[in-house]
């Protein structure tokens, strides 16, 4: 019997990529994707279900589709993309309802993978160079995205304690770079002059977007309960990141940095507070636990930066291609369920 997977946030970057990858896995029988918006990439056999952001119909879907695996990718880490309230609804209330549904009586859920972020470790001056999974942050979270993710991890922890028969895996990703993903860091690196804070040159760690998807598939295939950091090897100074990108830097003052970053925000490149913190002290997370479980990275931190930069150069030459795919419910229905469509006999 194959897996029956539910993906939250199908229209998000990660949800879509993951559904695409899972469609190639013959071990996976059913893929159901939830989102408030329609999928943005073409999917062959994933079933899309429109929900509100706090998943009120979720327990019915879990029961009806006999879902055994939940991949929770609908977590907002980029705080520049929405208001605090919306982020709270998606991250905290969404996770709460997701786990309420997954732990309802008669639930068939056996595996849960949550895509968290290394922002839960915070950034502080007294931090160790490397955070391992057991370590906690030095100060209580102040930034809203960090508070939000902290609350999410609290629900994951509670769910794991209350449901000892479920494999709960929490992956904490460091800053992601790659050819396609857009984050506050990638936007900052696309500026003609890369912002830095005067007198600081913290060390950054990156993970390539392919390694993100591969790591989620890896834990799904190998069932590894617990927390795992996911990040490329190596820490590199921010000025070196800019150098790999072939950019010069522009220094923001060390005092009143947030105010100095306001003009950038008005120009469309917001540097959120949590990134300004990173630009001061940086952060490293120890990736050895996942490696010991057998995972092989394809990119180092510097390799991820290089891949991003190469894609950037390509785009600047050939331009961005507008996605041609538009989700149309009746067309998708036709291809999935009409008897007129011939499918491979299996």
């Amino acid at each position: 019997m194959g897996k029956r997977v539910l993906i939250t946030g199908l229209a998000t970057f990660w949800g879509g990529l993951l559904a695409q990858a899972l469609e190639h896995d013959p071990e996976v029988d059913v893929i159901v994707g939830l989102d408030t918006r329609e999928p943005t990439i073409e999917l062959e056999r994933t079933e899309y279900v429109r929900t509100d952001e706090n998943y009120s119909i979720l327990s019915r879907i879990v029961r009806a589709a006999r879902i055994d695996t939940i991949v929770h990718t609908f977590l907002v880490v980029d705080s520049t993309q929405m208001r605090a309230k919306t982020m709270h609804e998606i991250n905290v209330i969404g996770t709460m309802n997701l786990f309420a549904a997954a732990s309802a009586a008669g639930s068939t859920v056996r595996d849960v993978v949550v895509k968290s972020s290394s922002y839960v470790y915070g950034t502080a001056i007294e931090d160790p160079v490397w955070f391992t999974e057991e370590m906690t942050r030095s100060h209580p979270p102040r930034r809203r995205v960090e508070r939000s993710l902290d609350a999410v991890e609290g629900y994951v922890r509670d769910f794991a304690i209350d449901n000892p028969h479920v494999n709960v895996t929490m992956l904490r990703f460091s800053n992601v770079l790659g050819p396609d993903i857009v984050t506050p860091v990638s936007r900052a690196l696309e500026l003609p002059l890369v912002p830095k804070i005067l007198g600081y040159d913290p060390r950054f760690q990156f993970v390539h977007e392919d390694d993100v998807v591969r790591s989620i598939l890896f834990v799904l295939a190998n069932q590894l309960p617990g927390i795992y950091n996911v990040a490329g090897d190596g820490l590199l100074p921010w000025t070196e990141v800019a150098r790999i990108a072939g950019k010069r830097t522009i220094a923001l003052p060390p005092v009143g940095t947030a105010y100095a970053a306001v003009p950038l925000k008005l120009l469309g490149t917001e540097l959120p507070d949590e990134l300004l913190d990173l630009l001061r002290y940086g952060r490293g997370i120890d990736n050895r636990r996942l490696k010991e479980a057998g995972f092989r990275y394809q990119y180092t931190s510097a390799g991820a930066v290089k891949a991003f930069v190469e894609a950037l150069r390509l785009r600047s030459t050939v331009g961005t291609s507008e996605p041609t795919y538009r989700y149309a419910a009746d067309v998708e229905q036709f291809f999935r369920h009409s008897p007129a469509v011939t499918r491979d006999a299996d």
Partner: peptide
């Protein structure tokens, strides 16, 4: 061994 295009020795 992965490609590690470092540009400094930090």
């Amino acid at each position: 061994t992965l490609d590690d295009p470092r540009q400094s020795d930090v």
